[in-house]
Design a protein around this nucleic acid. Structure first.
Length: 554
RNA sequence: UGGGUCGUCGCCAAGCGGUAAGGCACGGGGUUUUGAUCUCCGCAUACCAAGGUUCGAAUCCUUGCGACCCAGCCA
């Protein structure tokens, strides 16, 4: 909801639009679109495109459509469509219009007929293999198909019969007649229609021929009067074809395609094919696994729409291929959550401590702030009693240098509570610390002790009042910054990306937590109540990100 | 001598002929009942390289070098 009036950073697309506006190129209108293929879940790379397209539209009082590029029914589904709508909304955007390339199948067909009539498309009987052979190579021109000079009448007849279902899949293809010797391979008579008897999730079995991307996308943009068609760098070579189709067809509008570099994030992947593989082969627990770079995964991990939008703004927009460090994304979520997440105490790996000088059976409710810098977020009661639980890491038999937590004979502050002193360490037969006998200083609640300085502060819960919880610690999915560079990206999956702590104890107030609510567990990180696996009497928290750790260990 | 695109700090990124913004990361100081936050300071005589034009070049020109994309009836 930040309505800060900071001017958005300059980037080359805004410069183009500003220039177009000055020239009154599209009657002062700006219309964009976000055009995913519904063949998978949206990921952080799509978020960049979403923020760009919807952001530009909002900034220029323009429009932005959500359009499903559903021309290849083989890989697409309703589930994916629904997830995409859900994720775009969750990110905080509203589309001006919701369209599908399949809405245009009839018009697309008519336009194809027009191309044929103009002598600019022909039905080819070459097989896929033959077409590949005829295409030539990167350095050698292609050869013309024997069918290239088929008469218009025959092409019209054949194309109609392709639609009517008279031919087998792959028997014929409709090709644009451009230039088999073009140095740009995309212009060597690209296929624009193929025969494919596959049930389409929206048009059912009405069609057995489907238009190809290059032919469909430009016309869809034109039909929606898109002014700026923003896509990623790999489509640069397709722009001449985009323009060619629209020029031949004399469409009422001719959008401008502009390409930008897709997002690449270290220690993860954003290839839909590979993400799909991770899900299908159960390397993760579904598209919304908190380790996934999908919007659904980030959401379940506890990321906020705000943080993701901020991230997309921070990484900039250029035509340079680049790799963004995870630290940037982590910074964005920490910044948001530090500001907005309520604080709470949770002990992930409990160590029992007994306050010997505290009365048996007594409980006092300590009032603790929900946020150290924002008093308006209120206070909560945290019960204190004789037996407490602290983090195993917060006690050391042999402390490392500069250790400022609890040691035998030493003092430490219990966050929001008293200063305690450890008098005795109880160990089991193997020498493992199983309990600490402590005393507390009753005169240190809300004030510093007399005549001595206590540096360390640790978190705690009351054993009898705390609630059990499962905490899931998520780490990066891969062990190397660029898994895509590996021979097989599965080889570099981080086997330790998920650590489940089944026996944690969280403070009493957390029993009230609602699904997807986010907290800072003081001193350990930001956590989100898992929306799927938490229930009435089961608390499951996912770690979104750790706290920054400025402790320079030796 | 196939075509297209791109080279500014460890990672992003402004800059558009007038003498290198900003963010992240990193290092150091201060505050702090989170080793968090906050705050202060530091961090490219240098813009892929070499020539050239100019009073003046990261910006213009030339020539190199490096990286990425393209030969689906995928998008």
């Amino acid at each position: 909801m930040s309505t800060n009036e900071t001017t958005p950073p300059a980037n080359f697309i805004r410069q183009i639009i500003n220039h177009d506006l000055k020239e009154n190129k599209h009657n002062g209108k700006v219309a964009t679109r976000f055009p995913p293929e519904p063949n998978g879940y949206l990921h952080i790379g799509h978020a960049k495109s979403i923020c760009l397209n919807f952001g530009i539209a909002a900034e220029y009082q323009g429009t932005c459509n959500l359009r499903f590029d559903d021309t290849n029914p083989e890989k697409e589904s309703i589930e994916y469509m629904e997830s995409i709508e859900r994720d775009v909304k969750w990110l905080g955007f509203e589309w001006s219009g919701l369209y599908h390339a399949s809405d245009y199948f009839e018009q697309l067909y008519d336009y194809a007929v027009q191309l044929i009539k103009q002598g600019q498309a022909y039905v080819d009987s070459l097989s896929a293999e033959q077409i590949r052979a005829y295409r030539g190579t990167l350095t050698e021109p292609g050869k013309e198909s024997p069918d290239r000079n088929r008469s218009i009448e025959e092409n019209l007849d054949l194309f109609a019969r392709m639609r009517a279902g008279e031919f087998a899949d792959g028997q014929y293809v409709l090709r644009a007649k451009i230039d088999m010797a073009s140095p740009n391979i995309n212009m060597r008579d690209p296929a624009i229609y193929r025969i494919r008897r596959v049930h389409h999730h929206r048009t059912g079995d009405a069609w057995c021929i489907y238009p190809m991307y290059d032919y469909t996308h430009c016309i869809s943009d034109a039909l929606e009067s898109i002014t700026h068609s923003l896509c990623t760098l790999e489509f640069e070579d397709h722009r001449p074809l985009y323009d060619w189709v629209l020029e031949q067809l004399q469409t009422p509008s001719h959008p401008q395609q502009i390409e930008f570099a897709r997002l690449q994030l270290e220690y993860t992947i954003v290839s839909k094919r590979k993400l799909n593989q991770l899900v299908m082969e159960n390397h993760v627990h579904g598209w919304d696994d908190p380790r996934m770079p999908t919007i659904a995964g980030l959401r379940r991990a506890g990321f906020t729409p705000n943080a993701i939008r901020d991230f997309c703004e921070r990484i900039g927009l250029t035509k340079q291929n680049s790799w963004i460090e995870m630290g940037v994304l982590e910074y964005c979520i920490r910044e948001d959550l530090n500001e907005n997440a309520l604080r709470a105490m949770a002990v992930l790996q409990p160590l029992r401590i007994v306050i010997d000088n505290y009365p048996e059976g007594q409980t006092e409710q300590l009032e603790i702030s929900n946020h150290p810098q924002r008093p308006e977020l209120g206070k909560r009661n945290v019960p204190f009693s004789k037996v407490l639980l602290i983090e195993q890491d917060d006690f050391a038999k042999i402390p490392p240098p500069k250790y400022k937590r609890l040691v035998e004979g030493g003092e430490v502050r219990l966050r929001g509570s008293y200063v305690i002193k450890c008098n005795e360490v109880v160990e089991d037969a193997e020498g493992r610390v199983i309990e600490l006998r402590c005393t507390y200083d009753p005169d240190t609640l809300g004030k510093n002790p007399e005549g001595r300085k206590v540096k360390g502060v640790i978190h705690w819960v009351s054993e009898q009042h705390a609630h059990p919880a499962e905490v899931r610690l998520y780490g990066r999915l891969f062990t190397v910054p660029n898994p895509d560079n590996e021979e097989n990206f599965l080889d570099v999956i981080n086997k330790d990306s998920l650590e489940i702590l089944p026996d944690c104890r969280v403070e009493a107030s957390l029993a009230e937590a609602s699904p997807e609510s986010r907290y800072q567990f003081e001193r350990t990180g930001y956590f989100c109540l898992d929306a799927k696996d938490s229930g009435a009497d089961r608390l499951v928290f996912n770690r979104t990100v750790t706290l920054r750790d400025g402790w320079v260990k030796d």
